[in-house]
């Protein structure tokens, strides 16, 4: 737990330092606030490092395994879905995403998965497109 606080602080310090460097070319007036915030964030990260060092021995790792593989699978499929939307359009990608996501997760019986995917897509079409005329991403397919 405390080791990751340390890592978070390091990431934040690098992030703020990059922001300060990037802001150097801005006009004086435009760079004041970003610089103030970045500096504050660096100071706060120092406090976080101090805290993480202090509690280092007191707190043992709880042994809870971070579900990295699942996290990667879930986020990767969402990312693929977003890319698909750009090329195929919203409705066809949504159908593909929902079917494959639920099959991957073994969410329900095959027939239930198909019905849910079709009805979600259909309901969105009815509400967003037909009734409320809300813009929906279009692509090669529907």
């Amino acid at each position: 737990m405390k080791k990751r606080d340390f890592l978070i602080a390091v990431v934040l310090i690098i992030f703020s330092a990059a922001a300060i460097i990037a802001a150097q070319e801005y006009p004086q007036e435009s760079r004041v606030m970003p610089n103030v915030y970045s500096a504050l964030l660096i100071i706060l990260s120092m406090f976080l490092i101090k805290r993480s060092l202090k509690n280092n021995e007191a707190e043992k790792e709880t042994g809870e395994h971070a579900p990295y593989r699942k996290f990667f699978m879930v986020t990767a499929s969402i990312l693929l879905y977003i890319i698909l939307v750009r090329f195929l359009g919203f409705y066809s990608s949504t159908l593909i995403f929902m079917l494959s996501f639920m099959f991957m997760m073994k969410a329900a019986k095959t027939i239930t998965v198909i019905i849910i995917s079709l009805s979600t897509t259909g309901l969105i079409y009815t509400f967003f497109d037909l009734m409320l005329h809300i813009p929906i991403p279009r692509g090669l397919l529907f």
């Binding site: 969402i78 977003i82 919203f90 949504t94 996501f101 639920m102 929906i136 991403p137």
Partner: peptide, 22 residues
Amino acid sequence: RILAPVICVLSVIGSFAIRNNL
């Protein structure tokens, strides 16, 4: 496991519709 993909789909459509921007 049924809720999760539905929320994803609604999130995507919601964030797109605000400015028609992917």
